[in-house]
Design a protein around this nucleic acid. Sequence first.
DNA 1: TTTAATTTTTGACTTTTAGTCATTTTATAA
DNA 2: TTATAAAATGACTAAAAGTCAAAAATTAAA
Lengths: 216, 216
Amino acid sequence: MGIAERKEREKQQRRKDIIDAAEKVFFSKGIEAATMEEIAEAAELSKGTLYLYFRNKEELQYAIKMRASEILGDQFLNQLDEKSNGIEMVERIGRSFIEFSKEFPDHFNLMMHFEGKNLDNLNMEDPHIQKYFREESPLILFTRVIAKGQQDGSIRNDITAEVLTHNLWAMTTGVLQFLTKQRMVLELCGHPGDVAHYIEGLFSILRSGIAKIRKS
Amino acid sequence: MGIAERKEREKQQRRKDIIDAAEKVFFSKGIEAATMEEIAEAAELSKGTLYLYFRNKEELQYAIKMRASEILGDQFLNQLDEKSNGIEMVERIGRSFIEFSKEFPDHFNLMMHFEGKNLDNLNMEDPHIQKYFREESPLILFTRVIAKGQQDGSIRNDITAEVLTHNLWAMTTGVLQFLTKQRMVLELCGHPGDVAHYIEGLFSILRSGIAKIRKS
DNA sequence: TTTAATTTTTGACTTTTAGTCATTTTATAA
DNA sequence: TTATAAAATGACTAAAAGTCAAAAATTAAA
């Protein structure tokens, strides 16, 4: 029974090779400019083969975005710390997100690209995508941290952990998107934004926004 | 000297006609599926003529997005109210944004589409775009309201009005983007989101986040 | 080992659409 | 009425995504 298993392994390896090649091409040429033909060349395969492993260009891009999320999730994991309370850990996680954007700018940009895009061209039944959302999304870990903060009394508990999580995530990505893609716009408005300044503003607002409300 | 003026007027009218046609086609067929050929037909012009008025497809989309922003800016204007203090007006403006998304869903979607997109294909020297950013963007009005809130003591003043404004805007659009485009994702995560619930969470977080910090 | 069946890969081909530009049409000035 | 300028046309080009019948490679059977 070893042949079927070996073939399956080889298939997964080829899939991985294609994603590697796509990463190189997307990141060097830019996500829009990169062509499937170029990716095929980089993977030493023909274009047709790509379509045996990925339904379309977008699904291939999404495979890279899932990798990016994995990296980010690992960084989040490193921020867990028994000594800190929930809200401190949330801040650490937030800052590690900023670090991630600097350390892996290409992966970060790809993530942001999908953050504001409908996913109609994607097959949501795809097992890779299903698995990602059920088990690997960084938001799963983040929700646990928020819940911990609610238990230790550092984070407000009048909003469910899920709603808090998704709001925090969406607010943060919203600001990061704004800062990366609209830098020229800011200049046009006459605010040649000091990015760090904006980030500190964001954290400050969020800190007050999610902290347990002190009874006065 | 009347001829040059009339010609200029006619030119602007034709430009408007093209945007009208584009609006119809983009909104009925969807922004991706719509073709320049279809828009030309709808405008009773040839495709080439479109390119005399707009550099490329994206610039035409952006013209509609600017219209959307104008509508939104008008709605913001209606929320101004001498009796309310700054933070109350900010909340009213926020809620009018939600109303806008329901009343003009197509315009809203187009706005969100551009909110997370680089503008490389756009000619930022274009006078229409310049004018928009300098004079018409809803953010200009919003900044004034924030500043008022800082003066009347209802909004924190340890962050500049501009940074507060852009952060609030980016956070809100981030959440709205998340809710519209990722509805299916939320279901996949096992949170068949009650959208209104998320929105209330957002407002609650932002209220605490930007309020003047009371000395305890 | 040879042959048949199955799986995987290929790349030429189709289709679609954005954007161009030489030519034609229309409007203005002489 | 003719010349000049401005505006509009649509056939054409280029680029790239996605398809599919045929070829190559692999595995199973005889």
